[in-house]
């Protein structure tokens, strides 16, 4: 007999799915992935594929082991893998990249309950774990393959932020090289142009809102100006764009409210500046995001919109 489905409204749903969102993020990361190959060579791809492969495999095996529903198809592990790879130097030994991937997926994501439940960004946290565990390999920078303005000393391999910290400003690459990513650094963080294209795509697709990146980058710009630093250099160096566009906008570890996002972005910007200018590390984007991740539940609670009760607040 033809049995009718009985269900509660709504009977229509938007076409957007978790998988679709993650696919958009992957698409948005592709320009930067291509540029990483242009800038640092084919080994970039080896690092990216290792991280993505191990992330997906870790998720698959862990869920199998715990008899949880398999969520590999939602592509979130692919995103984590790409982001982690983007945060590593191209010279990283592949086994270390694999270790970081396992830490990201199993320790930071799955042990807290899987997608949507992790309080910290898996890629960022894994990067910080790796910086502690493999501090040598994690700061083993190489120079880019080429330079647009020809000012880069081919043997100079330090990142611009390290150079600034050391006061070796003569060896700094030009703004043009900085914008297109021809500088030392993690493999996916250097090309500002590619990251901005990805960011615009995500904005256009409605995957992220402008609040976090604008607040984050804006705070860094304003604070750099106040502190008398070279503003474009501060914006284009380190992992600022990668962090502000792709990691500080992670859904599960950042506030979902508009004002929450602004507070989160400003907080990230301030901590980044504190670490860059006064801390021991040349770069502070990762730490700033992780620290703000911890504050997220409080920020969310603080900025939750007030229901429109029309003054009738009786419970």
């Amino acid at each position: 007999m033809n049995k009718l489905i009985s269900a509660v409204s709504p009977h229509f749903h938007s076409a957007r799915t978790t998988q679709g969102i993650m696919l958009d993020v992957v698409i948005a990361l592709i320009p930067a992935a291509i540029m990483s190959v242009v800038i640092f060579g084919w080994r970039s791809l080896a690092v990216i594929f290792t991280c993505v492969g191990v992330c997906v495999l870790s998720e698959f095996l862990f869920e199998k082991l715990c008899k949880r529903e398999n969520t590999v198809s939602d592509l979130s592990a692919v995103v984590t893998g790409m982001l982690l790879a983007f945060n590593l130097p191209v010279t990283i030994p592949l086994w270390q990249a694999a270790f970081g991937s396992v830490a990201a997926i199993i320790v930071v994501k799955q042990l807290f309950g899987g997608i949507g439940q992790n309080f910290a960004n898996p890629a960022i946290t894994a990067r910080i774990i790796m910086m502690t565990a493999f501090s040598g390999a994690m700061t083993n920078w190489v120079a880019p393959n080429l330079s647009l303005s020809g000012t880069v000393d081919a043997t100079s391999s330090a990142t611009p932020l390290t150079l600034i910290t050391k006061g070796e400003t003569d060896a700094l690459p030009s703004y043009l090289d900085m914008f297109f990513g021809f500088r030392g650094g993690c493999l996916g963080e250097t090309c500002a142009a590619a990251l901005l294209i990805g960011g615009l795509y995500l904005l256009f697709r409605g995957v992220i809102s402008w609040h976090t990146p604008v607040a984050f980058i804006g705070t860094v710009a304003v604070m750099s100006l106040i502190c008398g630093k070279d503003v474009p250099y501060q914006l284009l160096s380190g992992g600022l764009l990668l962090g502000a566009i792709f990691m500080a906008t992670d859904y599960s570890s950042t506030p979902p409210t508009k004002w929450g996002k602004i507070i989160f972005g400003v907080g990230c910007g301030l901590i980044t500046i504190l670490i860059r200018f006064w801390g021991n590390f040349p770069e502070g984007v990762s730490f700033s995001i992780l620290l703000m991740n911890i504050l997220t539940p409080a920020i969310t609670k603080l900025t939750r919109p007030k229901p429109l009760t029309g003054g009738a607040d009786k419970l």
Binding site: H13, D74, S76, I115, P256
Partner: peptide
């Protein structure tokens, strides 16, 4: 539609 875990995107509250 197939239900998957909440990803905390905030679309509902926004």
């Amino acid at each position: 539609p197939k239900t998957t875990p909440c990803i905390n995107c905030g679309a509902c509250l926004n």
